[in-house]
Protein backbone atom coordinates (compact mmCIF):
# COMPACT_ATOMS: atom_id res chain seq x y z
CA UNK A 1 0.00 0.00 0.00
CA UNK A 2 0.98 3.65 -0.30
CA UNK A 3 1.24 5.85 2.79
CA UNK A 4 1.19 9.65 2.71
CA UNK A 5 2.22 11.30 5.93
CA UNK A 6 3.61 14.64 7.07
CA UNK A 7 6.88 14.10 8.92
CA UNK A 8 8.72 16.95 10.57
CA UNK A 9 6.78 19.40 8.42
CA UNK A 10 7.47 17.65 5.12
CA UNK A 11 4.97 15.75 3.03
CA UNK A 12 6.34 12.21 2.62
CA UNK A 13 5.21 9.20 0.64
CA UNK A 14 6.13 5.53 0.87
CA UNK A 15 5.16 2.81 -1.56
CA UNK A 16 4.93 -0.98 -1.22
CA UNK A 17 4.33 -0.73 2.51
CA UNK A 18 3.28 -4.07 3.94
CA UNK A 19 0.07 -3.82 5.98
CA UNK A 20 1.75 -5.27 9.05
CA UNK A 21 4.47 -2.64 9.19
CA UNK A 22 4.60 -0.21 12.09
CA UNK A 23 5.01 3.53 11.91
CA UNK A 24 8.41 2.88 13.47
CA UNK A 25 9.46 0.66 10.54
CA UNK A 26 8.09 3.20 8.10
CA UNK A 27 10.12 5.99 9.68
CA UNK A 28 13.29 4.00 10.16
CA UNK A 29 13.49 1.84 7.08
CA UNK A 30 11.46 3.66 4.42
CA UNK A 31 11.76 7.36 5.24
CA UNK A 32 15.39 7.42 6.36
CA UNK A 33 14.62 8.62 9.90
CA UNK A 34 16.22 6.09 12.27
CA UNK A 35 16.27 8.50 15.21
CA UNK A 36 13.25 6.81 16.79
CA UNK A 37 14.61 3.64 18.33
CA UNK A 38 13.68 -0.04 18.22
CA UNK A 39 14.48 -1.27 21.74
CA UNK A 40 11.42 -3.42 22.45
CA UNK A 41 8.89 -2.90 19.64
CA UNK A 42 6.02 -3.63 21.97
CA UNK A 43 5.36 -0.34 23.69
CA UNK A 44 7.24 -1.03 26.92
CA UNK A 45 10.40 1.08 26.60
CA UNK A 46 9.35 4.38 25.03
CA UNK A 47 12.48 4.63 22.90
CA UNK A 48 10.37 5.15 19.74
CA UNK A 49 8.28 7.97 21.17
CA UNK A 50 7.16 10.45 18.49
CA UNK A 51 4.44 13.07 18.27
CA UNK A 52 1.45 12.15 16.15
CA UNK A 53 -0.85 15.15 15.78
CA UNK A 54 0.97 16.61 18.79
CA UNK A 55 0.28 13.62 21.03
CA UNK A 56 3.24 11.45 22.05
CA UNK A 57 2.86 7.83 20.93
CA UNK A 58 5.03 4.75 20.71
CA UNK A 59 5.68 4.54 16.98
CA UNK A 60 6.07 0.77 17.30
CA UNK A 61 2.41 0.45 18.37
CA UNK A 62 1.02 2.51 15.49
CA UNK A 63 0.45 0.70 12.20
CA UNK A 64 2.07 2.50 9.28
CA UNK A 65 -1.33 2.84 7.63
CA UNK A 66 -2.73 4.63 10.68
CA UNK A 67 -0.31 7.46 9.99
CA UNK A 68 -1.99 8.20 6.67
CA UNK A 69 -2.64 11.97 6.43
CA UNK A 70 -1.41 12.52 9.99
CA UNK A 71 1.26 14.89 11.24
CA UNK A 72 4.25 13.15 12.76
CA UNK A 73 7.14 14.87 14.52
CA UNK A 74 10.18 12.82 15.44
CA UNK A 75 13.30 13.54 17.46
CA UNK A 76 14.94 14.62 14.19
CA UNK A 77 12.38 17.41 13.95
CA UNK A 78 13.03 19.06 17.33
CA UNK A 79 16.20 21.02 16.63
CA UNK A 80 16.07 24.26 14.65
CA UNK A 81 18.87 23.64 12.18
CA UNK A 82 22.14 23.67 14.12
CA UNK A 83 20.42 25.00 17.25
CA UNK A 84 19.37 22.24 19.58
CA UNK A 85 16.04 22.38 21.35
CA UNK A 86 16.58 23.36 25.03
CA UNK A 87 15.63 19.83 26.07
CA UNK A 88 18.27 18.35 23.77
CA UNK A 89 20.85 20.84 24.97
CA UNK A 90 20.08 20.04 28.62
CA UNK A 91 20.42 16.28 28.05
CA UNK A 92 23.94 16.73 26.68
CA UNK A 93 25.01 19.21 29.34
CA UNK A 94 23.61 17.30 32.30
CA UNK A 95 25.30 14.05 31.28
CA UNK A 96 21.91 12.42 30.72
CA UNK A 97 23.28 10.69 27.62
CA UNK A 98 25.39 7.57 27.93
CA UNK A 99 24.72 4.96 25.26
CA UNK A 100 21.94 7.25 24.08
CA UNK A 101 19.58 4.58 22.81
CA UNK A 102 16.78 5.75 25.11
CA UNK A 103 17.60 9.40 24.51
CA UNK A 104 15.43 10.16 21.46
CA UNK A 105 12.31 8.82 23.18
CA UNK A 106 13.13 10.56 26.44
CA UNK A 107 13.83 13.83 24.69
CA UNK A 108 10.43 13.71 22.98
CA UNK A 109 8.67 12.69 26.22
CA UNK A 110 10.39 15.47 28.19
CA UNK A 111 9.65 17.97 25.42
CA UNK A 112 5.98 17.05 25.63
CA UNK A 113 5.99 17.32 29.44
CA UNK A 114 7.50 20.81 29.40
CA UNK A 115 4.99 21.92 26.78
CA UNK A 116 2.20 20.88 29.10
CA UNK A 117 3.80 21.66 32.47
CA UNK A 118 6.46 24.36 32.23
CA UNK A 119 7.79 23.89 35.78
CA UNK A 120 7.15 20.28 36.75
CA UNK A 121 7.85 18.95 40.24
CA UNK A 122 10.07 15.89 40.59
CA UNK A 123 7.11 13.52 41.06
CA UNK A 124 5.54 15.01 37.94
CA UNK A 125 8.74 14.47 35.95
CA UNK A 126 8.95 10.89 37.18
CA UNK A 127 5.34 10.13 36.24
CA UNK A 128 5.78 11.70 32.81
CA UNK A 129 8.92 9.69 32.04
CA UNK A 130 7.80 6.41 33.65
CA UNK A 131 7.18 4.89 30.22
CA UNK A 132 10.74 5.43 29.05
CA UNK A 133 13.33 2.86 30.06
CA UNK A 134 16.98 3.79 30.42
CA UNK A 135 19.55 1.15 31.32
CA UNK A 136 22.69 3.28 31.65
CA UNK A 137 22.07 6.33 33.79
CA UNK A 138 19.92 5.32 36.73
CA UNK A 139 17.77 8.30 35.66
CA UNK A 140 19.38 10.85 38.02
CA UNK A 141 20.96 12.88 35.27
CA UNK A 142 17.83 12.61 33.16
CA UNK A 143 15.96 14.31 35.99
CA UNK A 144 18.76 16.89 36.14
CA UNK A 145 18.35 17.49 32.41
CA UNK A 146 14.60 18.02 32.61
CA UNK A 147 14.99 20.41 35.55
CA UNK A 148 17.68 22.30 33.63
CA UNK A 149 15.55 22.52 30.49
CA UNK A 150 12.56 23.70 32.51
CA UNK A 151 14.66 26.45 34.09
CA UNK A 152 15.63 27.73 30.65
CA UNK A 153 12.30 27.74 28.90
Amino acid sequence: MRVNVTVNGEQRQADDVWEGESLLFLLRERLGLPGSKNACEQGECGSCTVYMDNVPVCACLVAAGQAQDRDVRTVEGLADGDALDPVQEAFVEAGAVQCGFCTPGLVVAAHDLLDRVPSPSDPEIREALAGNLCRCTGYEKILDAVRLAASRR
Binding site: R28, E76, L84
Partner: peptide
Amino acid sequence: RPDGNLKVRGEFAYASDLW
Protein backbone atom coordinates in the same frame (compact mmCIF):
# COMPACT_ATOMS: atom_id res chain seq x y z
CA ARG B 1 30.82 13.98 25.14
CA PRO B 2 31.70 14.29 21.46
CA ASP B 3 28.79 12.07 20.40
CA GLY B 4 26.24 13.81 22.63
CA ASN B 5 24.95 16.23 20.04
CA LEU B 6 24.31 13.48 17.48
CA LYS B 7 22.65 11.29 20.10
CA VAL B 8 20.13 13.90 21.22
CA ARG B 9 19.31 14.75 17.61
CA GLY B 10 18.61 11.11 16.77
CA GLU B 11 21.40 11.17 14.22
CA PHE B 12 23.91 8.88 15.89
CA ALA B 13 24.15 5.69 13.83
CA TYR B 14 23.59 2.62 15.99
CA ALA B 15 24.12 -0.82 14.52
CA SER B 16 20.39 -1.23 13.95
CA ASP B 17 20.23 2.07 12.03
CA LEU B 18 22.65 1.04 9.31
CA TRP B 19 21.50 0.89 5.75
